[in-house]
Amino acid sequence: MESPERFEQIVLSHLDSLYRAAAALCGRMDGAEDLVQTTVLKALERCETFERGTNCKAWLFQIMRNIRIDQLRHRRVVGNTVPIDEELVTAKPEAEATAWSDARDLLENFSDEQVIRALKRLPEDQRLTLFLTDVEQLSQQEVAEITGAAVGTVKSRASRARNELRKHLLAYAKEMGFAGRDR
């Protein structure tokens, strides 16, 4: 068992990853900071439950996800909806999935902010799964443990998320006039 000071150091060494995850989950940066603080505090309270030798970052993501679920549950109770920033992506996605003529070139036309905002339109479970797989590049097993889902569910969720994201981006690309050709 690490000393509390050492454990605090280890937890805080993952601050950037935690902040990115919180930004993906919350949408707003001030909310992200609150979520990170709450997660860190909760992690320090529960340091005895951390199994040495396991992935600390994955453990922190799991705590963050649970806190987020509690927050959303409470908001639903009081009748609030999750606030979403003013959308850059406004067009509805098309129902049919078609391959882009040149996905890489097309994706380069989007700013980072536009990609992140498009991601925010996905359901929370898809968004988190895609973040953990594509950004944090965790294994499917780790993502399954964090999200409390089966590995098969993680795969299908990630795939759906990727499809949905490309639909949103494609719709936006057409709206902006830098895409129009589907195969």
């Binding site: 996905a103 980072d112 990609v115 895609l130 973040f131 797989t133 950004v135 590049q137």
Partner: peptide, 13 residues
């Protein structure tokens, strides 16, 4: 396409 989307999401964050 899937690889490109995965890479772009990673890059965005």
């Amino acid at each position: 396409e899937k690889r490109a989307v995965a890479r772009r999401v990673h890059q965005a964050f």
